[in-house]
Nucleic acid binder design. Structure first.
Lengths: 216, 216
DNA sequence: TGATAATTTGACCGGTTGGTAAACATTACA
DNA sequence: TGTAATGTTTACCAACCGGTCAAATTATCA
């Protein structure tokens, strides 16, 4: 009998790595579309092209699989914020942060929806990671923004709500894609909508934070 | 034997009205927390304080119940946008629209999450309503915004993406509440966060759309 | 090659879920 | 009051779901 995955030696065979990758890819597809409880193991197994017991050989439970996926996605999801540079030019840093987030919404909508699903349902599995690593990173970058405001480089504003608003506006194009398409209609909903969004958001944020708006 | 609800005469008894209300209230509670597939009929029945067969006497299937709920929520959810007044002052109209949406996120988070859940999972039940009534209303208001921009009363901008950004930033405080609380921490996450958000969003949108930002 | 470990599968299981059947209780109203 | 329509409950079912098991198959390597 084979040992369960967690009890193996560190060395992972190519097969293990390939299959686990295959499973997580399928799990992303299914979880992001139906949420945790809406997704079934059979469904994931089918998308992954293997039998259910075979899948459960690599991830012993549905929850293990989900947790592995969430952890990985949360990590890459924060990359754009990590690149946020205290030494850079404030305006161009904010602009490129918006652009990177929007690109992720366009190129990785499933990851965005997986995350949104999780948060929406109370984040039962990742509350610790939100209060830990996520909060720390945001605290750090909020301090950077605050210092920019203090130095008069951008308008004074609440840095946390600024970050929230960048998150929400950009992820909206992934999470609420169906609605966006429905409202824009067939003619306007071509891929140009991401460029239009980028233009608009740049205008909104750079206008709203322009130093000339700051009294005193 | 009782007739199923759909086949009854138009006159609804007080009992019917009360029970259906009771059920939809419970359904809102459960669906908004767990999504469609994550919610169980037993759970809804328990919250509604009745037996499962009794509940199914009023709504023959889980889906019927869900659809009734979604339809009603979508309707009230659009009220703030309906109040958007073409004759009013552009700046104060936009400001009060943001405020109303933010108040709804604060006072009716369950409705917001129910809707978000539905859209997130591809809006299988309400695509028609998105492409119909919703799109029509947005088209109408977008035209108003466009006319304001043309008259030089606000900066030129894409009215659709403006509306999207107001939706996303305000609903974020309902849909992503867990994340917002986690990031702000226990000390800052008191109810003051909605006032802080209102102040920030006002600054953002009114600054970003200020007519002085418009070249030419 | 042969033996051992890793991988894959079909059959199955107990619990849950959406929904039904039919008896029973209550209300509306002639 | 009587009775027919409406409302409620208990018992139940078939399908589905997450997960197990033991047997079969394949890879690894001395």
């Amino acid at each position: 009998m084979a040992l369960p995955r967690a009890a193996r030696t560190q060395r992972r065979t190519r097969i293990q790595e390939a299959k686990e990758e295959q499973i997580l890819e399928a799990a992303l597809e299914v979880f992001s579309l139906h949420g945790f409880r809406g997704a079934t193991v059979d469904q994931i197994a089918e998308v992954a092209g293997m039998s259910k017991p075979n899948l459960l050989y690599y991830f012993r439970t549905k929850e293990t699989m989900h947790r592995a996926l969430i952890t990985r996605v949360l990590d890459t999801w924060l990359d754009p914020l990590r690149e946020f540079d205290a030494q850079g030019n404030p305006v161009s840093e904010i602009r490129s942060y918006i652009r990177r987030k929007l690109e992720m919404a366009r190129d990785f909508p499933r990851e965005s929806r997986l995350f949104a699903n999780e948060i929406l349902q109370g984040a039962p599995n990742i509350e610790d990671e939100l209060k830990g690593p996520l909060k720390s990173l945001v605290d750090e970058k909020a301090e950077v923004i605050r210092s920019w405001a203090k130095a008069g480089k951008i308008a004074k504003c609440d840095p946390y709500h600024l970050i929230f608003s960048i998150w929400s506006t950009t992820q909206h194009y992934a999470d609420f894609d169906v609605q966006v398409r429905a409202v824009l209609g067939q003619d306007q909903a071509g891929e140009g909508r991401f460029e239009d969004a980028a233009r608009f958001l740049e205008q909104l944020f750079l206008g709203g934070l322009h130093v000339s708006e700051q009294p005193g």
